[in-house]
Structures are given as structure tokens and as C-alpha cells.
């Protein structure tokens, strides 16, 4: 099995495989995010306490949970790259970082826009909000470390170490609402027990969470393919693609 897996570390095969997967991820992402958002905005019932302002949840929760999931993906790729010296894994981590940063920014902004009407303030320095802000800085740190070395093997090592150390922040974000008292409400979706949310609100939310995941997957594939090309400019198959692109 390891031998079979290793063949996908070959840049050309990784490039082609991600090209085959890309349309599937894109179609699923568009369908799911479209369905979830329209359902959430138009058909989900109005909340009895928060009125229609709660409709921000259909993008806030997917963005926030996926910002953590994407970080775990990036850190895992970095770990594989560091330990087994697989360059394709490093490139995957480099592809995820900017996407994670954008998703984290969205989570923070939608949270602020939801906090203003409900809590009366855009921002408080409490555990959940601050640790999510730290996540944004971790992403930005990984991006700038990777960008600041000409030698990309060295760059990936530096950025990878930061990404792995930063994993400590993920359980802090996740459990911050249980560990410290916070303005932020605890999670309404529970895996082991019944969710504290009516199902006609829960379904569009779950659809959007999966949809955001697919969308991040699709953008990762796009960026990953570009990263492979950029790092393999000396290989004949990339040179062929480059001359073909220039002729266009």
C-alpha cells in the first residue's frame, strides 16, 4: 500500500489526479453552498429570540469550523512533508494556507456582524474570539514564512514547523466556550447527543458546512496544481505545458 501511495507523490501524477478530482469538488461545492445558503436565507424559520439576524449562522459556523479543519489539513500535510521529506505534501500545505486565512477572516467578520446586533458590540477580547484571531495570525505567519525564502525546501520546513506548533491553538478554540465564560454561545451541533437546534435550521447548516468543505477542497486543488507547476519548472512535462500556454 505504501508503494501505491508513494506513486502519488510524483508531481506529474499528483497534478493529473488533482485535475481529475477538481470538477467533482467544484460541482458539489456549488450545489451544496447554493442549496444551503438559499435554504438558510429563504426557507429556514425565523428564530424566536434572534429574529432574522441568526441567518448569519449559515455562513459563520461553516466558515469557523472549516477554518479549523483546513488548519488541521495544512498541519498534517506539513507534518508528512517534514517527517517523510515528501515535497508534494509541502506544496499542499502551501496551497491551503491562503485559503485558510480567507476563511478565518470570513468567520471573524461574520461573527462581528452577528455580535453587533445580538451582543451590542462588534468585538470582545474573550477566549473564543481571541483564539480565532490567533488562528488568522498563524495562517498569515505560515504564508509569510513560506514566501520569505527563495529556497522553497527551506521555506516549507520553516513554515511547516510553525504550522505544527500552531496546532495547539485548535483545541483551545474548540473548547474555549466550555473552559471559560464567554459571550459566545456554546455549540448547538452535537455529534454524540441530540443537537439543540430544530432540524429545519440544522439541515441547511449541515449542508453549508459540507459545502464549505468541498469548496475549500476545490480551491486547494486549483492552488495545489499551480504550486506543483511553479516548483517543477525544470521538468519537461511542465515546460511543454508552459510553451503551449504561451502560444495561446
Amino acid at each position: 500500500m505504501w508503494k501505491w501511495l508513494h506513486s502519488y507523490a510524483d508531481p506529474e501524477r499528483a497534478y493529473k489526479l488533482s485535475g481529475t478530482l477538481l470538477p467533482w469538488f467544484s460541482i458539489l461545492a456549488i450545489l451544496l453552498v447554493g442549496t444551503g445558503s438559499i435554504w438558510g436565507l429563504l426557507f429556514a424559520p425565523t428564530d424566536y429570540q434572534q429574529g432574522d439576524s441568526y441567518r448569519i449562522i449559515f455562513i459563520h459556523v461553516p466558515a469557523a469550523s472549516m477554518s479549523m479543519a483546513a488548519y488541521m489539513g495544512m498541519a498534517t500535510a506539513s507534518f508528512i512533508g517534514l517527517v517523510w521529506q515528501i515535497k508534494s505534501a509541502d506544496w499542499a500545505a502551501a496551497a491551503i494556507a491562503p485559503i485558510g486565512a480567507v476563511i478565518t477572516f470570513i468567520a471573524l467578520l461574520t461573527g462581528a456582524a452577528w455580535g453587533k446586533p445580538m451582543w451590542g458590540t462588534w468585538w470582545v477580547w474573550d477566549a473564543r474570539l481571541t483564539s480565532e484571531l490567533v488562528l488568522l495570525f498563524l495562517y498569515l505567519g505560515v504564508i509569510s514564512l513560506y514566501a520569505s525564502f527563495e529556497d522553497k525546501v527551506l521555506a516549507a520546513r520553516a513554515a511547516g514547523i510553525l504550522a505544527i506548533v500552531g496546532v495547539i491553538n485548535i483545541p483551545i478554540i474548540k473548547y474555549s466556550v466550555d473552559w471559560w465564560s464567554s459571550l459566545h454561545q456554546p455549540s448547538t451541533i452535537k455529534i454524540t447527543e441530540k443537537s439543540t437546534m430544530s432540524s429545519d435550521m440544522l439541515y441547511p447548516l449541515l449542508i453549508n458546512i459540507v459545502g464549505f468543505g468541498m469548496m475549500i477542497g476545490a480551491i486547494t486543488l486549483v492552488r495545489y496544481r499551480t504550486e506543483i507547476l511553479a516548483r517543477n519548472g525544470m521538468r519537461p512535462w511542465v515546460r511543454e505545458l508552459a510553451t503551449a500556454e504561451e502560444a495561446k
Binding site: I106, I219, T226
Partner: peptide, 28 residues
């Protein structure tokens, strides 16, 4: 919320797609 979210995502997606051509032209 919805405006900024889909605005940011659209920008990210367009930039990510365009980047490929830029890299290939540079190699060429």
C-alpha cells in the same frame, strides 16, 4: 455578512485560477 463572504470567496477563486497561467508564462 453574506456580501463580504461571497465577495472574498469570489476574489480568492479568481486569483487562484489566474495564478496558473501567470506561473506557466513565467516558466515559458
Amino acid at each position: 455578512s453574506y456580501g463580504v463572504t461571497f465577495g472574498c470567496l469570489a476574489t480568492l477563486i479568481t486569483l487562484s485560477i489566474r495564478q496558473k497561467r501567470k506561473v506557466l508564462i513565467e516558466i515559458a
